[in-house]
């Protein structure tokens, strides 16, 4: 048991080193930004304002990825009793909330350009992210009002699993709730989704998950260091 934990740890360490990841995200995000502003042509319908799309959508998908990662780690905690999964799940939720906040902010700005309002209840994704934002903020409330220990890990893990079920259910609910309002058909990937627009989007879609993963690893290493320091202090005391 102990040895297998050690090998898992060893495998975890040999993944990709943090500086390499940070360098990769630096290069990728910078290139993506350059493409967004200087290479991608203006959209035929929306003109310049369509350029928010590249980061907005990529960030949204990254946030979903973070929540899914959190649920996966939560499952590992409950199922395999992986001792490190609890912290990893928490850090994934944290990243997901940061990127979710970004989705809300960029989406709100986009709504202002396109429709003249800062908030639109008819935008499914925005409303979904608002619900998820509230849900995962409650995750932090839950986590910080339980003393550290196996129970906190269990409660957090179960709640993170709820989240991944809530995402599709809420999405369906928001779709259903809109039937009284006229549907907004917004063709993001219509016929004009090609060439440099596609390249720029793909670049952004690669860059932002890499950035999220870098931040995840950074925070994880800081949190681990914190934990180890605490252990050390107990030993020394």
């Amino acid at each position: 048991m102990n040895r297998s934990a050690a090998t898992i740890q060893a495998v975890g360490r040999t993944r990709i080193s943090l500086p390499v990841l940070a360098g990769a995200s630096l290069v990728l995000v910078t290139t993506a930004l350059a493409f967004v502003f200087f290479v991608a042509p203006n959209d035929a319908d929306q003109g310049f304002s369509q350029r928010i799309f590249y980061f907005h959508v990529s960030i949204a998908i990254t946030a979903y990825g973070c929540f899914a990662g959190a649920a996966w780690k939560a499952l590992r905690h409950l199922w395999k009793r992986d001792p490190r999964a609890d912290l990893e799940s928490y850090v994934f939720v944290h990243q997901g909330v940061i990127f979710g906040t970004l989705v809300l902010l960029t989406g709100s700005i986009w709504a202002k350009i396109s429709w003249g309002h800062w908030w639109l209840w008819s935008e499914d994704q925005l409303v979904l992210f608002l619900v998820l934002f509230l849900f995962y903020c409650a995750y932090f409330m839950l986590r910080f009002s339980v003393d550290p220990g196996p129970q906190r890990a269990n409660l957090s893990a179960v709640y993170a699993l709820f989240g991944v079920v809530l995402i599709p259910v809420s999405f369906a609910a928001i779709r259903l709730s809109k039937q009284l309002i006229h549907p907004v058909v917004f063709t993001r990937d219509g016929p004009n989704f090609h060439g440099w627009i596609l390249v720029t989007y793909c670049l952004a879609q690669v860059a932002l998950p890499v950035l999220a993963y870098t931040l995840y690893r950074l925070e994880l290493s800081a949190k681990r260091l914190d934990g180890r320091l605490r252990d050390l202090r107990e030993v020394l005391a």
């Binding site: 003109g47 928010i52 906040t101 970004l102 700005i109 350009i113 931040l215």
Partner: peptide, 20 residues
């Protein structure tokens, strides 16, 4: 105006990452 808003959106992303 469109340019201003797009810049604002990207600045928000940048600012939040810096806050992090």
């Amino acid at each position: 105006t469109a340019e201003k808003y797009v810049t604002a959106a990207y600045c928000v992303v940048f600012a939040l990452v810096l806050a992090y």
